[in-house]
């Protein structure tokens, strides 16, 4: 059985996918590459415990493995697996018939959002973190999600179009509206 030590570090995602299709043992290399990123993404999307997050991530990887032959080589593997994670988390919300009302952010997330959304960073860091958290919680889920993907997950517009399965123009509009709404809530929280 393959171990992560044997994983071709320099291989691109597409090359790794080709390898997995020939020898499924290589799937561990893909998982290793995306484990941390997807865990963080899942936890940012919903208020899951670390255990629940890992359970979801495990299901996401198994889903990805089963559907790997349906992966469209035209799109990036990263967008494809994020799409699977996105769908899985959304269906989890539907299953629980509720979306999380609270948001968990760490210090790094706060500074990423503050930079991305061009928020005034001169204010007290604790206050800034608190106001960002509250503003995010007030955002509608679709807006919260797109800001998370854009500024915390650092996904490109092109990838966002593939993850959310929307035209790039719609993605740009969504980001613009989400930023606007976020700033309104943030300004209100500041005052």
């Amino acid at each position: 059985m393959l171990t992560v030590k044997n994983c071709p570090v320099k291989a691109s995602d597409a090359e790794l996918v080709e390898l997995v299709l020939d020898n499924s043992d290589y799937f561990i290399c893909l998982m290793e590459r995306y484990e941390a990123k997807l865990r963080r993404y899942i936890l940012r999307l919903g208020r899951f415990s670390a255990e629940d997050g890992d359970d979801l991530l495990q299901e996401v990887f198994i889903k990805a493995y089963k559907n790997l032959r349906g992966f469209n080589i035209e799109m990036s593997f990263s967008a494809w697996i994020y799409r699977i994670a996105h769908n899985h988390v959304i269906s989890q919300f539907r299953h629980n018939s509720a979306r999380p009302l609270t948001v968990e952010l760490d210090t790094n997330d706060n500074s990423l959002l503050a930079t991305g959304l061009q928020l005034d960073g001169r204010i007290d860091q604790v206050l800034l973190a608190e106001s960002i958290k509250r503003a995010l919680e007030k955002l509608r889920p679709a807006y919260r999600e797109i800001l998370t993907l854009k500024f915390l997950e650092d996904r490109s517009y092109d990838e966002l179009a593939d993850i959310l399965q929307k035209p790039p123009g719609t993605i740009a509009t969504l980001i613009h509206k989400a930023k606007k709404e976020f700033k309104q809530h943030w300004t209100y929280e500041q005052s």
Binding site: M1, S24, M31, Q58
Partner: peptide, 19 residues
Amino acid sequence: LSQSVADKINKEQIKQKPV
């Protein structure tokens, strides 16, 4: 986690859907 998923795939003989 990656290891446990890989183990699960092997143990349960989870197959990729055919093309």
